[in-house]
Computed example of a mutant assay.
Amino acid sequence: MKIAFILFNGVTFLDFVGFYDVIYRLNQFDQTKGTTWDICGVTEEVTDELGMKVKINVIKPDLSGYDLVFIPGGIGTRKLKDDADFIDWIKTAGPVKYKVSVCTGSLLWGAAGFLKDRKATTHPNVYDLLEPYCLEVIPSRIVKDGSVITAGGVATSIDLGLFIIRLFAGAEAVHVVKKQLDYPYTAVGIVEV
Rank of each mutant, 00 (worst) to 15 (best):
I3Y: 09
A4V: 01
L7T: 10
N9K: 10
N9R: 07
N9V: 02
V11L: 15
T12Y: 03
F13H: 07
F13E: 09
G18I: 04
Y20Q: 02
V22Y: 15
I23M: 13
I23N: 07
R25T: 10
R25Y: 03
R25D: 01
F29M: 05
K33W: 04
K33V: 11
G34R: 12
T35N: 03
T35F: 06
T36P: 00
T36I: 08
W37F: 15
D38H: 10
C40S: 03
G41I: 05
V42T: 15
T43F: 03
V46N: 10
V46T: 12
D48P: 00
D48F: 11
L50A: 06
G51R: 12
M52Q: 12
V54F: 14
I56C: 13
I56M: 11
P61Y: 11
D62R: 09
D62N: 15
G65F: 04
D67V: 04
D67I: 06
D67W: 08
L68F: 04
L68R: 01
V69C: 01
V69N: 08
F70T: 04
G76A: 10
R78W: 13
K79P: 00
L80C: 02
K81W: 08
D82R: 04
D85K: 15
D85H: 10
F86E: 03
W89F: 05
G94Q: 12
V96L: 12
V96Y: 09
K97L: 06
Y98I: 05
Y98Q: 01
V100F: 12
V100I: 14
V100Y: 11
C103D: 06
T104S: 15
T104M: 07
T104W: 12
L107S: 00
W109T: 02
G110W: 11
A112K: 13
A112W: 14
L115T: 13
L115A: 08
D117G: 01
K119D: 10
A120G: 05
A120D: 09
T121L: 02
P124K: 13
V126F: 14
Y127P: 00
Y127S: 01
D128W: 01
L129T: 15
L129C: 02
L129A: 11
L130R: 11
L130Q: 08
L130V: 12
L135T: 13
E136R: 15
V137H: 12
V137C: 07
I138T: 13
I138G: 00
S140R: 14
K144L: 03
D145M: 10
V148K: 06
I149G: 00
T150Q: 10
A151Q: 06
G153F: 04
T156C: 14
S157P: 02
S157H: 08
I158E: 01
I158L: 10
L160K: 08
G161L: 09
G161W: 14
F163T: 05
F163P: 00
I165D: 07
L167E: 14
L167G: 00
L167P: 00
E172G: 01
A173V: 02
V176D: 14
V177H: 07
K178R: 15
K178P: 00
K179G: 01
Q180A: 05
Y183E: 04
A187D: 02
V188K: 14
V188M: 08
I190C: 06
I190K: 12
V193E: 15
